[in-house]
Nucleic acid binder design. Structure first.
Length: 488
RNA sequence: GCCCCCGUAGCUCAGUUGGAUAGAGCAACGGAUUUCUAAUCCGUCGGUCGCGUGUUCGAAUCACGCCGGGGGUACCA
């Protein structure tokens, strides 16, 4: 789509000024025009289905209600089904009409749509040309990639995400033809309606490894990836952290891979729920109308900064933190909050996107744990305690106060939680644990003076508990990719 | 049509392989700060775990049925 957009709709100035932004615009534009034509083609069919559904519904309503109970129930049921079908069709039609109006209501867009009636096929053709090694498209792709990669790297960098090894789709491209050939050779892939497909017993949908126009698909790349990871990297587990809606794809992929001979590798779809908008409809990342990650992060950091500044002005002895320190705290708190919001929900549950949830700084949030950690650091700083020395001196932990006991029990459970997290790839178990731990620490902090403990033995014991708490929070948050801060 | 997921407090969600009076956060309300950071703590209010039947000593959890909501389903990448 981007290739087609570049060749037909490029704004050269915008491309020079903001390459990625312009490419994104082109993608959205082509996607919109494609959607327009698809909607125009689809609309009459849907309208026909709707009038059919209307007629059926009227017929049902006019029909006499059966005398027997069973008949009544089935009558009621089909009535309900019909009207729900009718409502569904109306909704779909409305959505298509809006799509069409969006283009036709804009003179420039309407003209473009008229000039590019076969945009969908032609855009696809650009992809298959690229796959076939077309020099122009390959050169363009080489031109686009660095800018896009740089934009991604900036985000990953800000989020503290690092990769051991990155291989894009292009890495596998040279091997795709032989994947298809190998599947054919084994009798796994057959031609169907001009496409090369693998059919898996019990699944109606085909697994298309090569389209009618010759282009390969994600299915082909995914198979080539499995082969590479097993043959070259000797992977024994491969995890796919992908939206639950791709479940069918992975079912077919894994089944095909096994039949292809890759039986010794554990292939797992670690699926996660769909992110829904306020209307409870899925966010569609490709349509480009979602909340951008960057603006989400910026907003989170701004809000965190407001709290930091507010706290600083309220301090009895005047502000302690300079601008750089405050900025660092705001970044850690803002980004940590977003990561935590995402990781603290059961990954399989769909969730409604909410700014408030993403940006909350009180209650069950990353901030809560970061704050508990900073409070421990405050104790050591205030008491001028050398933590390494404390650990070396080997004092005893005594548990007399209920708050001490509760905290210690929770600390001892850390390893169990990590086992459970790894077992089924459920980070929310770790967030639950850390929240409970931090909560127990806060209670302990309120009720058990550490530096001013009644005896030196008790003081050492409580210092050890505080130290362990900080270490555990630090490790736990670190595993979630969330930073800790010494002062907040 | 076929396949998959969900329904737990006003809201957002936990609830590990079935195990004790079903838990949090937010919201609401009431308290706590001369003492290590109040981004905090303590408390109150709030639930027929969608409905029914079954399996079990025991079900939010398992089975079946029903009601309600959502998603996927041949050439998009």
């Amino acid at each position: 789509m981007i290739l087609y957009g570049y060749k037909n709709f490029l704004n050269a100035d915008a491309y020079r000024a903001d390459t990625v932004g312009e490419l994104a615009r082109l993608y959205r534009l082509v996607s919109q025009l494609e959607g327009y034509h698809a909607a125009v083609a689809e609309l009459p069919k849907l309208r026909a289905r709707l009038s059919e559904a209307d007629a059926q519904l009227r017929q049902l309503q006019a029909a006499p209600v059966p005398a027997d109970k069973k008949g009544q129930e089935s009558h009621k049921k089909s009535l309900k089904q019909r009207s729900s079908e009718q409502a569904g069709l109306r909704e779909e039609i409305g959505s298509l009409e809006r799509k069409i109006a969006g283009v036709e209501g804009d003179a420039a867009l309407a003209t473009l749509a008229r000039q590019h009636p076969r945009i969908a096929e032609e855009a696809r053709l650009e992809t298959s040309r690229l796959h076939a090694g077309d020099p122009t498209n390959t050169a363009l792709w080489r031109e686009f990639m660095p800018a896009c990669q740089a934009a991604l790297d900036r985000m990953y960098d800000r989020l503290g995400i690092h990769f051991d090894l990155t291989l894009g789709e292009s890495y596998y491209q040279p091997g795709l033809a032989s994947v298809v050939a190998s599947l054919k050779e084994r009798g796994l892939a057959v031609e169907s309606d001009g496409a090369i497909c693998v059919f898996i017993a019990g699944v109606e949908a085909p697994f298309i490894v090569q389209k009618r126009d010759g282009a390969f698909t994600y299915a082909t790349t995914d198979l080539a990836t499995i082969a590479d990871r097993v043959d070259r990297l000797q992977a024994d587990v491969v995890l796919y952290v992908v939206d639950a809606r791709q479940a069918d794809h992975f079912k077919l992929l894994f089944a095909t891979a096994r039949q292809w001979g890759y039986t010794g590798v554990d292939l797992r779809h670690v699926s996660f729920g769909t992110i829904l908008g306020d209307d409870r409809r899925p966010f569609k990342t490709r349509s480009g109308d979602t909340v951008g990650l960057e603006s989400l992060i910026d907003e989170a950091v701004v809000r965190a900064r407001q709290i930091v500044d507010g706290n600083e002005t309220q301090k009895a002895n005047g502000p302690e933190l300079d601008d750089a320190a405050r900025a660092g705290i705001a970044e850690a708190v803002g980004i940590g909050g977003i990561k935590y919001a995402d990781l603290s929900q059961n990954r399989e549950t769909d969730y409604v996107f909410s700014w408030d949830k993403m940006l909350a700084l009180t209650g069950d949030t990353a901030t809560y744990m970061q704050y508990a950690y900073a409070r421990v650091c405050g104790i050591f700083r205030r008491g001028q305690i050398d933590r390494a020395e404390l650990r070396r001196n080997g004092g005893r932990v005594v548990l007399e106060h209920p708050a001490e006991r509760g905290l210690a029990l929770q600390l001892a459970r850390f390893h169990e939680v990590l086992d459970a997290v790894i077992f089924d790839y459920r980070p929310n178990l770790l967030t639950d644990y850390l929240f409970a731990l931090s909560n127990l620490f806060s209670t302990f902090f309120e009720q058990c003076p550490v530096l001013k403990a009644e005896s030196s033995e008790l003081r050492v014991s409580r210092l050890l508990l505080a130290d362990l708490t900080a270490q555990t929070i630090h490790r736990g948050l670190h595993l979630l990719g969330i930073e800790t801060i010494e002062k907040m």
